[in-house]
């Protein structure tokens, strides 16, 4: 059972993610995490300002429960199913990151620069986190889905629109990492 405590290989993890999609289909639902962000807007009363948020949130209650599970799953995995959460990065990737200021590259699960509790004291980091969140939320709804809805569910159902969205995800990601990171870090 020791394998549980190690990092799970991609050829196990990928099929397990599609199992989640399959189970939700068998429950009569669709796999998609970003729609929860819309439901949360509705819960905060956004229906008063835009029709986009006027819908019965109770129909999406099941998905909010999935999110609650995901939070609990993250806590269980980190606290009880992991001995060592260091991400083994290739030397070149780690040294590139270090030169950008990410000192914890190759030594942690998440970069201290952005996600340590002290990070929030730096207004620049705070702005970057807010910007990242805004882009993800705005882009996911504009594209009609995120990684789960398009990259996993949509591609598995051979949807061309999802392929376009995934191409977009990659264009955006490549531009951020290759052209914008050197300017902001």
């Amino acid at each position: 059972m020791n394998w549980i405590y190690d990092s799970w290989p991609w050829y196990i993890s990928g099929p397990l993610i599609s199992l989640v999609m399959f189970l939700l289909l068998m429950m009569g639902k669709r796999f998609g995490m970003s729609s929860n962000l819309r439901t949360m807007c509705t819960l905060c009363g956004a229906g008063k300002t835009s029709d986009f948020f006027k819908f019965d949130w109770k129909a999406q209650r099941w998905n909010l429960i999935v999110v609650l599970g995901v939070i609990i799953g993250g806590a269980i995995a980190n606290n009880y199913l992991s001995l060592n959460t260091v991400i083994p990065l290739e030397t070149k990737v780690a040294s590139d990151l270090k030169s950008l200021g990410f000192q914890s590259a190759g030594e942690a699960y998440m970069p201290d620069l952005l996600f340590s509790e002290d990070a929030l004291k730096d207004p620049k980091i705070l702005i970057l986190l807010i910007l990242g969140g805004l882009l993800v939320g705005f882009g996911a709804r504009y594209a009609g889905g995120c990684t789960s809805g398009h990259a996993i569910s949509g591609l598995s159902n051979l949807q061309i629109p999802s392929l376009l969205a995934v191409i977009g995800f990659f264009i955006g990601g490549l531009v951020m990492v290759h052209f914008i990171f050197p300017l902001i870090f």
Binding site: L131, G137, A165, I171
Partner: peptide, 17 residues
């Protein structure tokens, strides 16, 4: 929409899941 999402995905390093 995909490009905007991708910019945020790489910056925050996390998608909605």
């Amino acid at each position: 929409g995909g490009i905007i999402f991708g910019l945020g995905w790489a910056l925050a390093g996390a998608c909605p899941g």
